[in-house]
Design a protein around this nucleic acid. Structure first.
Length: 598
RNA sequence: GCCGAGGUAGCUCAGUCGGUAGAGCAAACGGCUCAUAAUCGUUAGGUCGUGGGUCCAAGUCCCACCCUCGGCACCA
C-alpha cells in the first residue's frame, strides 16, 4: 500500500551560516527518512525553507548596515549550497519572505480572527525613545525589585531566578544603548493581537494524550506543558500569546483587521505556517495545481513528520497544532510524529557563534565529502541524549569504520571480481548453506533497516547494516577466494558472487544514509541508471519580487527498496574507492581553529 | 526557583516488562594478504554520578544530593 508521507525539517533562521548542529537535528534525519520512503514507493512531500523573519535577522542587519531582506537572502543562498552539497533531497526549499507565504499567513490570521481565536489587547510597554522602538523583555535591563541584583533582565532576574515584568525593574536601561549612551525610556500603550490559546488547551491535551507513539520526552514534555497546574479535565497550561510586534520586518497584519503600518505578525506565528505555505508553493512552482492537498487532507494513509531540535518541541506539538485546529476546522491533519532530536555539542561544549565555537557547514563541506559527515551524524545522532562532535571522532569513524569496514568490503570484492572474472559478476556454482545464510541475512537487513528508519531510529538502522558488512568481511576471510581461485575457480566465483549480492543489498540499505557513495557503488555494480536524483535551483518570480528555491529531482527509474537481483555474467563498472582515508593531522588542524575568529 | 533530559568500559554511545552489564572503535595477542598497512579471530577492560531505601533480585523502581544541559511563553 502506498502512503502519503510528508516530512518537514524545522525552518532555520538565516541570520548567519548554519553549523553542523542544525543538520544533525533536522535536515539529516529528515533526509534519511524521506530517501527511504521514496525508495519504498510511498508518495513523499518534503518541504521547508529559511525563516527570514525574527529579531536575530534584524539585529544582524542593523549591525551590518544592511536591510533584513539582504541579510536573509545572502544566508538563504548559502543554506541552499549546503543542502546541495550534503544531498538534502527536499521537494522544495524556499523562504518566508515570499508573497505566497505572506498571503497564506494572512489567511490563517484572518480565519482565526474571524472565528475569535485572535483578540486585540492594549498593554503598557517600555519604549526606547532614542532607538524609536518598543523594547522586548530581554532588551531591558535594570535592578531587580526583589533581590536588587543590578543587572536583571526584563523577563527574569538571573540572580534570584524570579520571573519579572520589565515594568517592575528599577532604573530600566535599554540594551539598544551602546556603551556610554543613555537612552530615554517611557511607558507607552501598545496594541497587540493575541492568540487565545486557552481555547485550544483541552482539545490539544486530548489529542496529545493519544500520541503514544511519540518519543517519551516529547510526549511528557507536551502533556506537562498543556496541563500546567490544572487537571486533564481542566488544563491550564496555555495562556494567550501575543502574535504581533512593533516591527517593520515580517508579514504585515491583514488590512481587513485594521491599519497597522508599524506592526508585523511575529515570527513564531508565521514560521510554522511555512510548512503549509511551502507545500502550496511547491505545487504552484511546478505546475501541479492542488497536488499539495494530498498531504494536507485527513485520511488514514496520510502521515506527517516534523524533524526538529529539542528547543522547538512546544512550537510543533502545541502552537502549530493549535493553528491547524483553528484554521482547518478538523479537516487538516495534525502532525503524526514530532521526532525531536537533542543537541549536538562540539568537543564537549555547546555550539556558540559569539565564542567562535562552531564548525560551519559550508567550511566543512568545502574540505570534506558529504557522506562521511552524514555517516558521523547518523551514527552519532542525538536521538535520545545530547551527543558530541569531535574531530578525532570524525577521523576515527571515517578511517576505521567507513573506509575500513564498508568501503573496503566493496573495494576488495569489486576489484577482485573485476580483475579475475573478466570485469563481470562471477557466475556462481551451487550455493551452500553458508552462502545462502549470508545472502538471506543481507536481504533481511533491508527489512530491519527499513523498519528502524520508518520508526525514526536512525542509529539502529545504520549500525545493523554495518554489522552485516562486518559479517561479509568475515565470510570473505573464511572462504578465501584468493586461495580457492587457484584450485577451484567456480568456488571462488561463488564466494565473490555471494558477497556482491550482499553488497548490492547493503548499498540499498545504506542509500538513505550515504546517497552519494551508494550511487557510485550502484554504478560500479554495473547498473546503468542512477539511484540518486539531482538538484536544481530556480528563481521564482512573483509580482513584486523574486526568490531562489531549491528542488530535488528524483531519478526517472525508482530502484526500489528491494533485494538484489544481481546475476552472474553481468558487466561490472570500474571499481573505485568509495571513501578517502583522512590523515590524522586533520584533527589538530581543525581543532586549532575552534574558539578563534574565522 | 519551577518543569524536563542526561551522568554506563580509554573514546563515542546502546541497555525494551527489574533477573549474573552490551556494541563499535581504541588496546594486547594470533591469523590472512584479495583490499585505501585495509580485513578476520581471540583476549582483556566497567563498585552503571554520590548516598540511602523497596525487593529474593536494581543500571533498570522510590527518596535525597552533586554535576552537565534544555525550556520557563513577546531572544522560537
Amino acid at each position: 500500500m502506498t502512503n502519503k508521507i510528508s516530512a518537514y525539517p524545522a525552518w532555520p533562521y538565516v541570520n548567519g551560516p548554519l553549523h553542523l548542529g542544525h543538520f544533525a537535528g533536522t535536515f539529516v534525519p529528515n533526509d534519511i527518512f524521506v530517501r527511504y520512503q521514496r525508495l519504498r514507493g510511498n508518495e513523499v512531500l518534503s518541504v521547508t525553507g529559511s525563516d527570514t523573519h525574527g529579531t536575530p535577522v534584524t539585529v544582524t542587519a542593523e549591525e551590518e548596515g544592511r536591510t533584513p531582506r539582504a541579510v536573509a537572502e545572502e544566508y538563504h543562498a548559502l543554506v541552499i549550497q549546503n543542502l546541495i552539497r550534503l544531498g538534502i533531497a527536499l521537494n522544495l526549499y524556499t523562504h518566508t519572505d515570499t508573497e505566497n507565504h505572506y498571503r497564506i499567513t494572512q489567511e490563517f490570521f484572518l480565519k482565526l480572527y474571524r472565528d475569535e481565536y485572535i483578540f486585540k489587547q492594549s498593554d503598557p510597554q517600555l519604549y526606547d525613545v532614542d532607538a524609536a522602538r518598543f523594547l522586548p523583555d530581554r532588551y531591558v535591563e535594570g535592578e531587580c525589585p526583589i533581590c536588587h541584583y543590578p543587572r536583571a533582565r526584563g523577563d527574569q532576574c538571573e540572580n534570584c531566578g524570579n520571573l519579572l515584568d520589565p515594568l517592575q525593574l528599577i532604573n530600566p536601561r535599554s540594551r539598544f544603548a551602546k556603551p556610554g549612551e543613555t537612552h530615554t525610556l517611557e511607558v507607552r500603550e501598545t496594541e497587540h493581537f493575541y492568540l487565545d490559546l486557552p481555547q485550544f488547551n483541552k482539545p490539544l491535551l486530548d489529542w496529545a494524550k493519544a500520541q503514544t507513539h511519540w518519543k517519551p520526552n516529547v510526549l511528557s514534555f507536551t502533556l506537562n506543558y498543556l496541563r500546567g497546574d490544572g487537571t486533564d479535565e481542566n488544563p491550564t497550561g496555555l495562556k494567550p500569546r501575543a502574535i504581533t510586534r512593533d516591527l517593520e520586518w515580517g508579514v504585515p497584519i491583514p488590512p481587513e483587521v485594521g491599519d497597522y503600518p508599524n506592526k508585523r505578525i511575529y515570527v513564531w506565528f508565521d514560521a510554522v505556517i511555512g510548512y503549509y505555505s511551502a507545500s502550496v508553493e511547491w505545487a504552484n512552482d511546478f505546475g501541479l495545481g492542488d497536488a499539495w492537498k494530498k498531504w494536507w487532507t485527513v485520511a488514514p494513509d496520510v502521515q506527517s513528520y516534523q524533524f526538529i531540535g529539542k528547543d522547538n518541541i512546544v512550537f510543533h506539538t502545541v502552537i502549530w497544532p493549535a493553528l491547524l485546529l483553528g484554521y482547518g476546522d478538523g479537516k487538516i491533519p495534525l502532525p503524526y510524529d514530532v521526532p525531536s532530536q537533542e543537541f549536538l555539542n562540539l568537543e564537549g561544549r555547546k555550539f556558540s557563534k559569539s565564542a567562535h565555537w562552531a564548525v560551519w557547514t559550508h567550511d566543512f563541506l568545502a574540505a570534506y565529502d558529504p557522506d562521511p559527515l552524514r555517516y558521523l551524524l547518523a551514527t552519532n545522532m542525538p536521538e535520545y541524549a545530547d551527543t558530541d562532535f569531535k574531530w578525532s571522532e570524525f577521523v576515527r569513524r571515517n578511517n576505521d569504520e567507513l573506509v575500513a569496514t564498508w568501503g573496503n568490503l566493496a573495494n576488495r570484492s569489486l576489484t577482485f571480481a573485476y580483475k579475475n572474472f573478466d570485469k563481470r559478476v562471477p557466475t556462481p556454482g551451487e550455493l551452500n548453506a553458508d552462502d545462502r545464510a549470508l545472502i538471506e541475512k543481507s536481504e533481511r537487513a533491508l527489512q530491519v533497516v527499513g523498519d528502524a528508519i520508518n520508526a525514526c531510529r536512525f542509529r539502529e538502522g545504520i549500525e545493523h547494516a554495518f554489522a552485516v558488512a562486518r559479517e561479509a568481511n568475515g565470510y570473505l576471510n573464511q572462504t578465501e577466494p584468493w586461495k580457492t581461485i587457484k584450485v577451484n575457480r567456480e568456488r571462488a566465483g561463488t564466494s565473490l558472487y555471494v558477497v556482491l549480492r550482499v553488497i548490492d543489498n547493503l548499498k540499498t540499505a545504506l542509500y538513505p544514509y550515504l546517497p552519494f557513495s551508494s550511487n557510485d557503488l550502484h554504478r560500479q555494480l554495473g547498473y546503468t541508471h542512477d539511484l540518486a536524483g539531482t538538484f536544481e535551483t530556480r528563481t521564482i518570480a512573483e509580482e513584486t519580487r523574486d526568490h531562489l528555491v531549491l528542488t530535488y529531482i528524483p531519478p526517472t527509474t525508482n530502484a526500489g527498496w528491494k533485494p538484489s537481483a544481481l546475476r552472474g555474467g553481468e558487466a561490472l563498472g570500474e571499481p573505485k574507492a568509495l571513501f578517502k582515508k583522512l590523515d590524522e593531522s586533520v584533527i589538530e588542524l581543525e581543532t586549532a581553529k575552534l574558539g578563534k575568529p574565522a
